[in-house]
Every structure is written in C-alpha cells, then in structure tokens.
Design a protein around this nucleic acid. Structure first.
Length: 455
DNA sequence: GTTAGGG
DNA sequence: CCCTAAC
C-alpha cells in the first residue's frame, strides 16, 4: 500500500517537488566557466584533473547539499600560505580591516561632547518579510503584504494627494516609529521630462528650516560630526520637524556651512569661534565641542573605465567570486574591496547579477547580498582621518579623478551591457581549449606574471 | 540601508 | 528637494 503511494508520488509530475537548489544549473554561465575552485590550476598544469572542463570537474567534486564534508582541496585554497602574510600586507597597505573598528578614537576627539550613541534598532523593530518563499506557494496569489499598497485607480493620484495632505505635523514633533514613514504634506508632481516620466508622482512639499531647527542640526554635528545624519536625526535630545529625513539634514548643513566656511566652523573648536569670524547665516555655535568629518566612510572613488575593463576580465576568470578578483594581482584591484567590486558589478550588470543570486552554488553565495548583514555591523572602513588643517579632500589630490575617465553607465544601457558580457562568455567567442582549466585570457596573463599571487 | 555630491 | 553611484 505504501509502495503504491510511493510509486504514485514518484510518477506523477504534479507531486514531484523540485530540488531547492540545483548546484549546476544548465544554463548558468558558471557551468561553462572553469571552476575557480580548482586548487592548483595555476601551479600544476599537468595535473590530470586539469584535463577536465570546469563543469566536469564540478560534477566530479559534487557532494550532496547537506554533507559538509571538509574538502582538502578547498582547504588548501582557503588556507593562507604561512610564509606570506607579511608580503600580502605590504602589497595592500590600505587593506580593509576585517573586523569592526571602534567608532571613536577618544584621543583624537577628546574635545567631543560625548552623548550616548543612538540606540541600535532591535530586531523586533523590523517586521520580518514574508518568508520563506516556498516552492509550493501559489505564485499567482498576491503576497500578504500586497494589501499595503493602495489600489491603482484613475483617482489614485488625487486620493494619495489628499491623504498626505491631511496630516501636517508641528515642530518639534519627531516620529520615532521606525516602521511608519513620516506623514508629510505632499503635492502632486508630474515630470514633464520625456525620458523619465512616471518615475515619481509626488514630491515632498518644501518645509523651510527655522533658525531653531538649524540650531538643532548644528548641535548634532557638534556631537556626531558631519556625515552621521541618521544618528543626528534620531538623537533623543535633538528635535526636527516631522518628516525631516537624514538627507534633509545633510542638505541643510551643506547650505548653512558651505565647504569654505565648513572647515572654519566645524573643525576642532573647543570654544566658539572668534568674533572676527562671521558665522554663516548669523549662527553662533550652539554647542561647545568639535565637529569634524565623521571618519566612518571611505572617500568616494568613482570607477574608471580601466577598472571596469578589469572587472569584466575578472568576471570571465572568476565569475562571481569577488574575493578572487581582488587577490589577483593582474587585475589591479588592490585599491578596491570585495564589496566595492560586487557593487560595481551589480550596478553595471544587474541582469547577470540576479542570475547569480538565483543559481549560484553555496560557495559563491558567500558574496551574495542575500546574506543579510546587519547594517550597523557592515564593513565600516576608516581609511584616513582628515588632517584638521586640510581644507577638504576634494582639491587635495590632483587630477586623478577625471570625470571623463570615470564613465557612468546610463541605466538605459545596462541591459545591453548585460547582454554583451554574458554573450561573450556564453558563446565562447574566444578560443577555448577543452584541456585548459582557465580561460585563454588567464593563461596569457600567467605568462607575464608570477605563477602564484603570493610569490 | 546610508551617505556624498551633482542636478 | 531629487537622483543615484558609492559606501
């Protein structure tokens, strides 16, 4: 009897449950690329294993998903060569630290007015998204959260407008409820620009900054430093008008303290500035303290065309394993981090990136953003602390960043780019020797550089 | 998720 | 105040 049921289960397609994850998706471009996990691909060219294609080798090494049997080969990859860490350090002097750094160096900012840091959000604050996404879920049904969105009707625009128009808050009224977007007056707006119509229907209504509110902002900067706008906004003793966002604070501060005045008024100043210095907009420094640029964030560096080329090259060699690209000296990514490479790829090749998301092997998923890191604990880098006497880091370095060299790819072109890159890989329009484990590009590179990145 | 900087 | 690359 049970046998019958079992047979029935096996034979009727409707009852079969697809595997949760296909380790080797047939259409995945990964499968046609040599496996970057091949342990000695660079060193031992004569190894028998190297005669296999990437897919064949992957299949040979395949093991069931729930069986984390430790693979010696993988270990040999992951393990850092004992003799070489020093050389690595000197090669990448500005390497990002792996662990969290403390936010403040108390010696440097002894003059700071230290107030309790804003409470980090508790997990319960955020309602969990609808998960897990079951394969048995009826996909034609709307998700439970769908009811949150207003119905789309001809009058929807006006209704939304009216709705937002009803709730106008008064200063100082700060909604601390993180789950609810601030109610805010809005006015309907229709973009007349032909290219991006219907992108945004509403624009927020302008709310003038009062002197008091700006004063709150200045206090906040005195406490946290420039750049921690969210912290300032959420600080329990500072009050801003309802609907004010962290970006608003940033914009406001930029207006009140333009860069030239900024360094005078926000750098190390245990005491309010001299009388001969005129305060912008008639402000006096409200808080005794020092405000300097918050060092939490590395200075922004736009991507150059050459870096983009190396990114594509790296993708052909290593697929979605940004860490391997990073380590490959031939790609010159020593000034970048793993996450930066990933972000850039996601921006330029969104379609390809999504494909990785859904089909990548567990190993490759290590770089996937689906592994949600807590925002607070994400890699915060502190590369340099500004010299208090340096005006700003914009002018300091000569023409390294030319706007033409760092090409920004328009959104409308990204799909083409997706296609171009994936096609060049899918169709193998380069010569592909089955005996090789790496793309020809890689072999060429290897001829002109040390056999192993570490020597 | 947040921030910097141009629009 | 908006947009979006970069963090």
């Amino acid at each position: 009897m049970f046998d019958d049921m079992f047979d029935d289960f096996q034979t009727r397609p409707s009852l079969r449950i697809p595997p949760l994850q296909d380790p080797f998706p047939p259409l995945s471009i990964i499968s046609r690329r040599p496996s970057p996990l091949e342990p000695n691909a660079r060193v031992n060219i004569d190894n028998e294993a190297n005669k296999l294609t990437g897919r064949q080798r992957a299949l040979a090494q395949a093991k069931p998903l729930g069986a984390p049997e430790h693979n010696e080969l993988e270990a040999s990859i992951t393990a850092k060569p004992a003799a070489l860490p020093e050389a690595q350090e000197t090669e990448h002097p500005k390497e990002r630290p792996r662990k969290k750094q403390k936010l403040y160096d108390h010696e440097q900012i002894a003059d700071f007015v230290q107030l309790p840091r804003p409470q980090t959000k508790l997990r319960e604050d955020k309602p969990r998204p609808f998960q897990p996404i079951s394969v048995l879920n009826e996909l034609h049904e709307p998700p439970p959260s769908a009811a949150l969105f207003p119905p789309i009707t001809p009058n929807a625009v006006q209704e939304e407008h009216d709705k937002y128009h009803s709730g106008a808050g008064q200063f100082p009224n700060q909604t601390k409820d993180p789950g609810r977007p601030p109610a805010r007056k809005r006015k309907p707006r229709v973009r007349s620009t032909g290219s991006c119509t219907a992108k945004r229907i509403y624009t927020r209504e302008r709310t003038a900054w009062t002197e008091e509110e700006t004063d709150q902002l200045v206090k906040g900067v005195a406490i946290y430093g420039m750049g921690r706008w969210k912290s300032i906004l959420n600080h329990p003793e500072l009050h801003f008008r309802e609907g004010r966002t962290n970006m608003d604070l940033k914009d406001r501060f930029r207006v009140v303290f333009p860069p030239n005045a900024r360094h005078k008024w926000t750098r190390a100043m245990p005491e309010p500035p001299d009388d001969d210095q005129e305060a912008p907009s008639g402000y006096k420094f409200a808080t005794k303290g020092t405000a300097k640029k918050s060092p939490l964030r590395a200075p922004k560096r736009l991507w150059t065309e050459q870096e983009d080329t190396e990114l594509e090259k790296g993708f052909q060699l290593y697929g979605f394993q940004w860490n391997l690209m990073l380590k490959d000296p031939a790609l010159n990514f020593d000034q970048r981090s793993c996450g930066q490479i990933r972000d850039r790829f996601r921006l330029r090749f969104p379609g390809l990136y999504k494909q990785q998301d859904s089909t990548a092997s567990p190993k490759e998923n290590q770089t996937s953003p689906k592994k949600k890191k807590h925002a607070k604990s994400s890699t915060r880098t502190r590369k340099t602390v500004d010299d208090p006497n340096e005006p700003a880091n914009e002018e300091s370095d000569g023409g390294a960043r030319d706007k033409t060299g760092s090409k920004t790819v328009p959104a409308s072109h990204t799909e083409e780019e997706d296609h171009r890159l994936s096609n060049s890989i899918l169709h193998n329009d380069w010569d592909w020797d089955e005996n090789l484990t790496l793309a020809p590009l890689a072999w060429e590179d290897m001829a002109t550089r040390p056999m192993f990145p570490f020597d």
